[in-house]
Design a binder for these strands. Structure first.
Lengths: 206, 206
DNA sequence: AATATAGTGTTATATAAATAACAATTTGTT
DNA sequence: AACAAATTGTTATTTATATAACACTATATT
């Protein structure tokens, strides 16, 4: 299968969680318009996304939820799972770590990093915090592929370079600093200042 | 001026912050390609965005940074500022609150809410935490227009309804729960599970 | 058995966003 | 003064995404 559109990937992630909820409540089949309603989408959108991933329903009985979830799993998740590190254990890093751990998933936070001696050595939801100077060593040792970057802005660029150096393949960047880091590393930025300013603008103008 | 494209609004927020940094370092003018480079964009993209907001440079001298910032301010910010509440003071709510306060801006967090008696009454970065049952009263009293929603998933829907009832105009939704809340309220969703799964997918497939 | 209904899968169209193309303008250079 | 270089503002094109249109199929209904 060729690479999916970004937006479809995003929705697949959402479909999966919605579908798992349905499964948990005993539902076995679902129509496109039902799934659409759960996520505030249209039925066409759902069907089109499922077309992209080549899933077919039993005509007129809706989609087999279990089978669909399995398919999404096979598309989104790496077979052996992917190891993740959180870099920068301030409030946000801590929040994210506690948010992710416990959720059964093939994405595992296996290490967290900080620069502060008071934080290093502590455990966050059972995950050890290492000195950021050990980044390269630990990334290799624990086969970490993705970093969630939650350091203060003034060290963001340097840390991103360290991550590149360490051989990371993807970064979820929560700092407000744009990273100039080349094409080899997949970077997804999330800027909450922008988000809130956007809400403010559209509240004002809609 | 008519309503701007979403993506342009997002970039305006980023332009502003980058430009303020330039100002702080004493720079007075900037070329489109310089600004583009700061944010990993192209010069054309920058010029097109500035076209949308009707800004003109002094030909061949680049943009007057101060004037441009003022223009962006006039577009993005409400004249009197907009008051914000954070609802749900777990790790994430706390992180966001400390992240936003102190930043001089016309977006002010003026109240935070929680349901836990141990949290209610505490101050977060100097902002009082109220019982969520006082939502409506406080929203009116403090003229709160926007809510940042960081409650646990099981109470997300109910809380969103309470916010609607209280007269909120916009929500930045950090819960993973889709809100079915009608058109009157502008909702911006951010789902970090989706974000990280997206990074994982593209790391695997690019 | 013929017809209607509800739902799907896919192609076609519309909208949004990014990129490219280029004329216009100012400054510098000969 | 003529020309080249750099940069802008805008229109045109391309690409990405969402929406609409519709033929197809299984089931239900008469």
């Amino acid at each position: 299968m060729k690479v999916l559109p970004e937006k479809t990937v995003e929705r697949l992630s959402e479909y999966r969680r919605a579908l798992i909820k349905c499964l948990d409540s005993g539902q076995t089949h679902i129509y496109s318009h039902q799934l659409a309603k759960l996520l505030n989408l249209t039925a066409v959108q759902v069907r089109r996304d499922l077309m992209f991933i080549g899933y077919s329903s039993l005509q007129r009985k809706g989609y087999d939820i279990k089978a669909l979830v399995d398919l999404i799993v096979s598309i989104l998740d790496a077979k052996e799972g992917l190891n993740i590190a959180v870099v920068g254990m301030g409030n946000l890093g801590t929040a994210i770590t506690s948010y992710f751990t416990g959720k059964r998933s093939r994405l595992n936070i296996v290490a967290v990093f900080d620069i502060d001696q008071k934080t290093i050595g502590k455990a966050f939801n059972g995950i050890a915090c290492y000195n950021i100077s050990e980044l390269k060593k630990m990334v290799q040792e624990k086969n970490i592929k993705i970093a969630i970057l939650t350091v203060p802005p003034n060290v963001a660029t340097q840390t991103a370079n360290d991550l590149k150096e360490a051989g990371i393949a993807g970064i979820l960047n929560f700092t407000t600093v744009p990273l100039h880091i080349g094409e080899q590393i997949y970077v997804e930025d999330y800027d909450m200042v922008t988000s809130i300013e956007k809400v403010a603008y559209f509240v004002k103008n809609k």
